Simulated scan of single mutants.
Amino acid sequence: MTEDEVVEWVAAELEAGRGGRIVTPNVDICRAAGTDPALKELVCSAELVVTDGMPLVWAARLLGTPVPGRVTGADLIWSLSDLAARRGWPVYLLGGPPGVARRAAAELTGRHPGLKVCGVHAPPYHFDATPEGSDRVRRKVVAARPRLVFVGLGFPRQDRLIADLRAELPGVWFLGCGAAIAFAAGTVARAPEWMRRAGLEWAFRLVSEPGRLARRYLVDDLPFAARLLGGCLAARLRPR
């Protein structure tokens, strides 16, 4: 699906009173899901799964089953906020360091003046270490009565929480959006457009946050991406 098609789909489902969740896998999420059946099920059971990450776009092309392009959480947080502003649907922002979700809400409402933000919350990093901590976060979201929830807690923490909330809020749409809340707030810089198109957003983020991302990108994700693309090319060339 394209980004516009995702927005149209969510709009139609919300109009019909049906909720859902959106997962935007990148290389790191695919690597994790490829080695853990529970995480694979967490991804594959979502109502919408769209491609975030140019290596996945390239892999699909190599297999002869191309996708339209990237659909990222960092973009969807804006386009879905535009939808919510036009329809009068309240949104909730969950995640990021203290103050970041509130700043992101201000940026989103500044661009979309009709947007209603019914709540923001930045839970402590290990909020889900105890059932009580998870329950407090869930109660805040449920009490706010949102129609759209943007959850930026990183995979798989955000997606496990969303799966739990889906049972309590069956008519709500959830977007697991990772760093998108920080991008929207402007506290973390996003790569220039040309780097995103070229599949180099990871390099920009690595330079920006080497201490946090070096091992993930260089040790874990880069070899996985190379194996993925090599395997897809081999499958494409294999005689049928």
Rank of each mutant, 00 (worst) to 15 (best):
G186W: 03
G186T: 00
G186H: 04
G186A: 01
T187Q: 03
T187W: 06
T187V: 09
T187F: 04
T187G: 08
A189G: 13
A189H: 10
A189N: 10
A189V: 06
R190G: 15
R190M: 14
R190A: 15
R190V: 14
A191N: 09
A191K: 08
A191Q: 09
A191R: 09
A191M: 08
A191T: 07
P192R: 11
P192V: 08
P192W: 10
P192S: 11
P192G: 10
P192H: 10
E193C: 09
E193L: 14
E193H: 15
E193W: 15
E193N: 08
E193P: 12
E193Y: 12
E193A: 15
E193K: 14
W194D: 11
W194I: 11
M195D: 05
M195P: 00
M195I: 07
R196L: 06
R196H: 10
R196M: 07
R196P: 02
R197L: 04
R197W: 02
R197T: 00
R197K: 03
R197V: 00
A198P: 00
A198T: 04
A198W: 05
A198L: 05
G199Q: 03
G199P: 02
G199L: 02
G199Y: 04
L200D: 03
E201S: 04
E201Y: 07
W202S: 02
W202A: 03
W202M: 02
W202E: 08
W202Y: 05
A203R: 13
A203E: 11
A203K: 12
A203L: 14
A203G: 07
F204S: 05
F204A: 08
F204C: 01
R205M: 10
R205G: 10
L206W: 06
L206R: 01
L206Y: 07
L206D: 07
L206Q: 01
V207Q: 11
V207L: 13
V207C: 09
V207D: 05
V207K: 07
S208E: 13
S208K: 12
S208Q: 14
S208V: 06
S208P: 01
E209G: 03
P210N: 00
P210G: 00
G211F: 01
G211N: 07
G211L: 02
R212T: 02
R212H: 02
R212V: 09
L213V: 00
L213K: 07
L213H: 03
A214E: 14
A214W: 12
A214T: 06
A214F: 11
A214S: 14
A214K: 12
R215I: 13
R215M: 14
R215D: 12
R215P: 09
R215V: 12
